[in-house]
Amino acid sequence: MHRVWFASTLVVAFFASNLFAADPPIDLAPGQRLVGKLGVGPAAENSGIVRSRNHDNVFWMHNDSGDEPRIYAVRRDGSVYPSERYPDTPGTLIGGAINCDWEDIAVMQDGLLVVADLGNNSNARRDLVLYLLDEPEPTAGRTTFRKKLFVRYPEQTTYPAPEHDFNYDCESVFTLGENIYLLTKHRSDTATRVYRLNDFTEGKTHELELLERFELGGQAVAADALPDGTRLVVATYDTLWLFDVRDADHPLAHPISRLPFKGDNVEAVAFDGPDRVLFADEATALLYEADVADFVPYGER
């Protein structure tokens, strides 16, 4: 009996060790550090993160299309705050909202959260929308939005856009002062265009204001600005860009440094104070960090 038990134990240990050994090694770039793995909820397909301005150690996240209209309060180690009313269902459901293709989340100067339903892979959507909502308590099970703002790109005249201008997807949203900014994700080139929204009147479709174009060398998939508006971080699929914001009309005019990183599908980035950023991979649910001091000055390799 003891021999059978011992043999069985060896078999279980063998398969367990091989299971963990089968996990691919985590390959990190210089300056990139692993924080942890996201908990149930944002681990599904995270595509946005922003630091709370009302609560310590709270970052708000959401998933891409396929999830309910739900945001998740996450600690900086990736663990998720449980819902007080619905302990078996993490996150805060936003009543009345629809998650068609949520791609980023931001926070405004007055503390309102901005959830961006702007994903537009087909470049054919006519229902691009921003939800503005009061930040809920981290353990709240339900809330609703304060405003629902429809937007459109003034340059887009056909739906879908023509192949040579397939550039009306947006996965990067940030705020400066009282305004909301959008960065387009291009499929016709490797640049991005910066748009601004400064009118929050409901009941109409807002035409976005085009400000500038910047060559990223990749697709813009996430962005965040410091609360004081002095710095902006933008992510592509392999690089974090840091900008010194000197003019709100041209926020990408002064790139100062970059950090190449390694990941499968990073689509979420946020400042964690002025000297550090967090970024998350939707394919692996891994959460990373990097210090601004480790970014390479722009123009150097």
Score class of each variant (00 low, 15 high):
Ala140Ser: 13
Phe174Val: 04
Leu240Ile: 14
Asp275Asn: 12
Asp275Pro: 04
Glu137Leu: 13
Ala116Phe: 03
Phe279Gly: 01
His186Phe: 09
Leu28Gln: 03
His164Ile: 10
Ala268Cys: 10
Ala191Ser: 15
Cys170Trp: 05
Ala220Ile: 10
Cys170Met: 10
Asn179Met: 10
Pro251Asp: 06
Arg3Asp: 15
Asp56Ala: 15
Asn167Glu: 11
Asn179Ile: 03
Leu232Lys: 05
Glu215Arg: 12
Phe59Pro: 02
Asp64Pro: 07
Arg276Ile: 11
Asn57Asp: 15
Thr175Arg: 08
Arg213Pro: 06
Gly263Lys: 02
Leu38His: 03
Val80Glu: 04
Gly111Met: 09
Asn198Tyr: 11
Gly95Trp: 11
Glu215Leu: 12
Tyr181Lys: 03
Glu135Pro: 03
Ser257Leu: 08
Tyr153Ala: 01
Val194Ala: 09
Arg213Cys: 09
Tyr159Cys: 08
Thr157Leu: 13
Ala106Lys: 06
Val114Lys: 00
Leu28Cys: 00
Val266His: 01
Asp249Phe: 10
Arg258Glu: 12
Thr92Phe: 01
Arg126Gly: 08
Glu178Thr: 12
Pro154Glu: 07
His55Arg: 07
Glu202Phe: 02
Gly273Thr: 06
Val194Trp: 02
Pro160Asn: 02
Glu300Val: 09
Leu226Tyr: 02
Tyr181Ile: 05
Pro87Glu: 07
Glu215Gln: 15
Val151Pro: 01
Val266Phe: 02
Ala44Trp: 12
Gly217Ile: 07
Ala248Ser: 14
Asp224Thr: 08
Asn120Gly: 04
Asn265Arg: 15
Thr139Ala: 13
Lys37Phe: 11
Ile94Met: 01
Arg85Tyr: 09
Asp291Gly: 15
Ala270Phe: 01
Asp275Tyr: 07
Tyr298Asn: 12
Glu171Cys: 06
Arg246Lys: 14
Leu130His: 01
Asp56Tyr: 06
Ala248Gln: 14
Ala16Tyr: 12
Ser188Glu: 04
Thr144Ile: 09
Ala223Arg: 05
Gly91Phe: 01
Glu300Asn: 13
Ser83Met: 02
Val129Met: 08
Ala22Phe: 14
Asp101Cys: 05
Arg301Ala: 13
Thr239Ser: 09
His186Asn: 14
Thr143Pro: 05
Arg196Cys: 09
Arg33Asn: 14
Ala280Ser: 13
Val11Tyr: 05
Met108Ile: 05
Leu286Asp: 01
Tyr195Ala: 00
Gly218Leu: 07
Arg51Phe: 06
Leu226Cys: 06
Ile94Gly: 00
Tyr131Pro: 00
Tyr168Arg: 02
Leu182Arg: 00
Glu282Thr: 03
Val58Ser: 00
Ile180Tyr: 00
Ala13Arg: 08
Tyr181Asp: 05
Ala140Trp: 04
Ala220Trp: 08
Leu242Pro: 02
Leu130Ile: 04
Ala116Asn: 03
Ser65Met: 07
Ala106Asn: 08
Met108Asn: 04
Pro227Met: 10
Gly66Met: 10
Pro136Asn: 01
Cys100Tyr: 12
Thr236Ala: 11
Gly263Arg: 02
Asp77Ser: 10
Gly111Thr: 10
Pro42Tyr: 00
Thr190Pro: 08
Tyr81Ser: 02
Leu133Trp: 05
Glu212Gln: 14
His55Phe: 15
His250Lys: 15
Ala29His: 11
Asn18Thr: 11
Leu112Cys: 11
Gly39Phe: 06
Asp189Asn: 15
Ala43Met: 11
Ala161Phe: 00
Arg51Lys: 15
Val173Lys: 02
Arg146Thr: 15
Val173Thr: 14
Asn179Glu: 14
Asp23Glu: 15
